[in-house]
Amino acid sequence: MFRNITLGQYMPGTSLVHKLDPRIKILLTLVVITILFMVDTFTGYGLVFLFILGVILVARLPVRFVLYGIKPLLFIIVLTFGLHLFMNEGRTLFSIGPLVATYEGAFKGFTMAFRLVLLVLGTSILTLTTSPIELTDGLESLLSPMRGVGIPAHELAMMMTIALRFIPTLLEETEKIMKAQMARGADFETGNALQRAKSLIPLLVPLFVNAFRRADELAMAMEARCYRGGEGRTRMKQMKLTAGDVLTGMVVTAGMVAIAIYL
């Protein structure tokens, strides 16, 4: 039942987008997100959309798969559109009882929904083309100058790695425990909110007990392999910024800023 999650899954590849330094990719994603909040014209959105589409093509990602990532958020997107459609004043488009849809609302709703879609697409390109390792390494590297102000960059990155490593394992385990309790007549689906919350106890207690046991064993295994924090640690994969990485970063940022200023 949890096997269908595709949102944000990494799709290995050798494209230019895959090879771009993860730090640049993270920063550029932030730039695109910021620009999306500054732009409010159709042309602006259009250009950002073309840019994202271009990246998807260059990265040779299957378009259907990328769009699949929007599915879990479809409800929120439709809701956003609906709210704007009916909540704005202006020329009447049509009406259902007391609810009046306006042209202005449709326009506003459409741009807001489009903005959300672009946000999801933009960030999922990052996770689709960057392995979890590169992501965490990139974050660690970007955060490390802030160690001085007390941000534990290595520890955060290690925690993220372990979390990413164990998500599939724990999902599998959740499914197994759920089934085992269902085999004993447990019911996770019916009843009111309180009953349903209560019915989760037989699921959550073993899940946590097992997670603690795993954490204990993992800690011991890490210690046995000489883990002692970030101090003196080397990495197999060194991140090296190439001129190409920097250039890509500059060009894309400049393009985005131009869109924000002129449109």
């Binding site: 790695t161 490593r165 295994a221 392999r225 990495r235």
Partner: peptide, 18 residues
């Protein structure tokens, strides 16, 4: 409970990295 990393090669690298 003893595999730390999200790919095989990164996990094998964990010890020597330490």
């Amino acid at each position: 409970n003893q595999i730390v990393s999200t790919t095989v090669e990164e996990d094998v690298a964990f010890g020597p990295e330490n």
